[in-house]
Design a protein around this nucleic acid. Structure first.
Length: 476
DNA sequence: CATGTCACG
DNA sequence: ACGTACGTGACATGA
């Protein structure tokens, strides 16, 4: 379980102090009163306690932090990052309202049509957004087979289930189509237009610096880190992320950053060589596990290797790999065995990481950011296994987060030092997005990838690539 | 407010 | 024998 890190919890844990809580003053629920109704002396004590405890918690934690050089540097990275984040949030992203309105209207029309067709196929009217109603019709009235259950034991109607049922029945395909379009309209095309400020046409996300346990940022209100890209239809939403007149959108992303970090952390000779030689790493992996020349790797074999590479980053199990590839457990186990024969350094790294997590209770990134894993020695098997997967993943995901934070700080620093007008406007885990005056495009194309690749010297070269366009879609 | 679902890296 | 890919945020439904 994660321990809370609000002021009251920290003061109690570290100082043994328990001040007045907000609830002590104002009560809760329907009986809650406004802070302006609180007796002045009590309000004063509460307010002063808050400030005093903040200072004392700071003194206490800073003393601990300052003793550890690596942790102190991570803390300083966070402080520097917060400056860059403030600038990004304040810049905002220009949104093309008419483009979104057009897309919303088209989506709305198609949704209405699909609804009618679905009701026709079902022989009744129902809410296509209600998993419960879908479930009643599918598994109750139509007698379709239950493919899998949800966490609470109800029959699932998620994407995977619907795909399977769609092989034999027409209605699941309609629901799938509806879900896709309704998601786009409800979460993106309608919402982004609403959230753009009327005066400027810009949306201003908020980045959370202390939510994701691995050190990644998260983005909310709106979340600009999950804008669609994987399907052609969804991707069109990115056409509405635009630059003002005389500017372009530039997107700079790290190539295969987590696999490069895996190569660094594991010191695996074959993986390091693949990156040093500038190879397509999935193709190289396929060549190794299928025993082929890189030239004779098929598209299907490369796809398998790519799934396996992702699995490694996630702390895969044979079961998870089997499901992802649609093969049986034994076949999946064979692929894993084959991989570890070819990349013994990776095998050793995985084993060492699990062992280290168990003895010291945390894992760390290349730069010393820690993730504590209280369940790593749990007698509860599934919980322990979950902690082991997190132990494998966090150093890679977290090191990538460290590196891009260093990039953000560095790039912003150079922009300021050179008096450039380029603005950083988004961060999406391994990607930085800029709004660039056209006369600074050469600078962005040339310098930004070099700055990003140069933030740290690992055992593998880092690679960043820049794309430019009139909007975020075209910039990729 | 919990649940199920689905968007991203 | 077990239940699983890692990390997030937002939406609609329906208690």
């Amino acid at each position: 379980m994660h321990r809370p890190h609000g002021l009251a919890s920290l003061a109690e844990r570290h100082l043994g102090r328990k001040g007045l809580s907000f609830e002590d003053l104002c009560g809760k629920g329907a009986a809650q009163i406004g802070f302006d109704q609180v007796d002045l002396a009590r309000a004063t004590q509460y307010s002063c306690e808050d400030s005093d405890m903040t200072l004392h918690v700071h003194h206490h934690l800073w003393t601990l932090l300052a003793q550890d050089e690596k942790l102190r540097r991570i803390y300083e990275l966070e402080i520097a990052s917060s400056e860059a984040l403030f600038r990004i949030e304040r810049n905002g992203v220009l949104i093309d309202g008419p483009t979104l309105a057009q897309q919303s209207q088209e989506l709305g029309e198609r949704i209405v049509g699909i609804e009618a067709q679905a009701h026709e196929l079902a022989g009744q009217s129902f809410n296509l957004s209600s998993p419960k109603q879908i479930s009643e019709i599918f598994f109750g009235q139509l007698g379709l087979p239950v493919v899998k259950k949800t966490a609470t034991g109800a029959p699932s109607t998620d994407d995977e289930v619907l795909q399977k049922l769609a092989e034999d029945y027409p209605l699941p395909a309609k629901i799938l189509e509806y879900r896709g379009l309704a998601k786009l309209k409800g979460t993106y095309t309608d919402k982004l237009a609403q959230l753009a400020l009327p005066e400027t046409g810009r949306v201003h996300t908020h980045y959370a610096q202390a939510v994701a346990v691995t050190g990644r940022l998260s983005s909310n209100d709106p979340n600009l880190q999950n804008i669609p890209i994987r399907t052609a239809e969804g991707r069109r939403v990115r056409e509405a992320f635009v630059a003002p007149a005389g500017c372009s959108i530039a997107s700079a992303d790290y190539s295969q950053i987590e696999l490069r970090i895996m190569a660094h952390l594991s010191d695996d000779a074959a993986l390091l060589k693949a990156f040093h030689d500038g190879l397509d790493v999935h193709r190289a992996t396929a060549a190794e596990i299928f025993g082929l020349d890189t030239a004779s790797v098929s598209a299907e074999q490369r796809r398998y290797a790519k799934v396996i590479n992702f699995g490694l980053i996630y702390g895969m199990s044979a079961y998870g790999l089997a499901k992802a590839l649609g093969i049986d457990n034994t076949a999946a186990k064979n692929y894993i065995t084959r991989y570890f024969e070819r990349y013994p350094g990776v095998k050793r790294y995985m084993d060492n990481t699990r062992a280290l997590a168990k003895t010291q209770g945390f894992v760390e990134t290349v730069f010393g950011r820690r993730l504590y894993l209280p369940e790593i020695n749990s007698p509860n098997g599934p919980r322990r296994a979950g902690a082991e997967r997190a132990a494998i993943n966090a150093p890679m995901q977290g090191t990538a987060a460290d590196l891009i934070k260093m990039s953000m700080v560095k790039v912003q620093q150079v922009i300021d030092a050179q008096g450039l007008s380029t603005r950083m406007i988004m961060q999406v885990h391994d990607e930085l997005v800029f709004e660039v005056p056209d006369k600074e495009l050469d600078w962005v194309r040339h310098d930004v990838p070099r700055l990003m690749a140069g933030v740290a010297e690992l055992k593998v070269p880092l690679l960043a690539e820049v794309g430019v366009g009139p909007n975020w879609e075209q910039a990729h």
